[in-house]
Design a protein around this nucleic acid. Sequence first.
DNA 1: CCCATTTCTTGCCAATTGGCAAGATACCTG
DNA 2: CAGGTATCTTGCCAATTGGCAAGAAATGGG
Lengths: 208, 208
Amino acid sequence: MLLPYKYIRIPKTVLMSKERLLEFFQKGNLNSPAIRNEIAGHFAFKTVAKGQLLLVAGKISDEYFFLDKGYLRCFAYDTEGNEVTTNLCSPGQIVFEISSFFNRTRSQENIQALTDCEGWFINFEQLNNLFHALPEFREFGRGVLVKGFAALKTRMLTMITETAEERYAHLLKTNPEIFQHAPLKNIASYLGITDTSLSRIRKEFSKK
Amino acid sequence: MLLPYKYIRIPKTVLMSKERLLEFFQKGNLNSPAIRNEIAGHFAFKTVAKGQLLLVAGKISDEYFFLDKGYLRCFAYDTEGNEVTTNLCSPGQIVFEISSFFNRTRSQENIQALTDCEGWFINFEQLNNLFHALPEFREFGRGVLVKGFAALKTRMLTMITETAEERYAHLLKTNPEIFQHAPLKNIASYLGITDTSLSRIRKEFSKK
DNA sequence: CCCATTTCTTGCCAATTGGCAAGATACCTG
DNA sequence: CAGGTATCTTGCCAATTGGCAAGAAATGGG
């Protein structure tokens, strides 16, 4: 029996080239092409369809995922059970739940595809082996953590020092594409406001 | 000529024992006493008098500092030049500015002693050498970053989901000692509110 | 292409938080 | 221990943000 068409179709856009993964390594100061290729060889291809979860709360994050194409969001829940978008991820980033991944504990967060996504992943054991085998890759891996940490510190500072409208204006300037891919209600909770307030802020903002 | 007394006096409480540093290593899964001692051997003693800066904005953070006694705060500036307390640090923690330290860039933040402090530090070069030499210590070092990252993520989530009063109540419950050592205006900006609002929240809160 | 569902906007009003300034309190230094 | 400085509190009022509900718009699945 033939499988239904939708199960065997591979979108034409899926080229499965590690080009951008290798570029990402290069930007992260992995200067030896041989080492970049060696590392990339341990990453496997993965797609996540729009709406699907790359990580489900309660499970252990075991994919250190380089997002090649598409957009993802991370979300947790508040005390009343409402979803709160904790991060919005664009292509060219590593996406995973740091605490669950490295401590091997159940994740508090979910990671969901906002659009159809493609990328490359490696699991904890293989990543750790590579870290211990390759000093350059350790430095690279630390750089990924440091960059993420610094970004979150900056975001926390803006939560303290800026108004909702200023945070909105800043996101619109630095990450305009996300508005094409994430629902406004997700962007609202990411900015720390309600969707109602974001709607009003956008209305005011468009007048200027 | 004799030095004035205050320049040569060493407080009686300064025992300069690495006891708590070694305990901290043990809690961080460094299970070999020999390795713990080896690592501790590279840390040097340091005091910071109340009000003094462990790190000055514009300089490169080069001290990975284990806070043994006392309390520290990290602070940055908003666009109008007002101080914003970005972190409050209690004994038993590693304190440094991650981005400046690992990227060797100028710090945006200051680190200031809220009380007289004592602790142990190691510089970037020595720390990095130890990381490359000792796999266990790398895991430990990663654990320090992961823990700090996770704590900041939790704090960001509370900034989004909780009211100022709830954040205050939470800090009072989880870190009551800090109220003995940090001025309320620092605690206020750490909580993301003005000192005026914190004062009112405390007034309301004490009624309950 | 149509219907159901989700998302977004808007009006009305309330709750939260902030800004300013004055007075009270605590703290440091000589 | 006295005076100056920094911190904290409080009153008054304004700005920001939220809650709810209804309707509009967009989206997705059959």
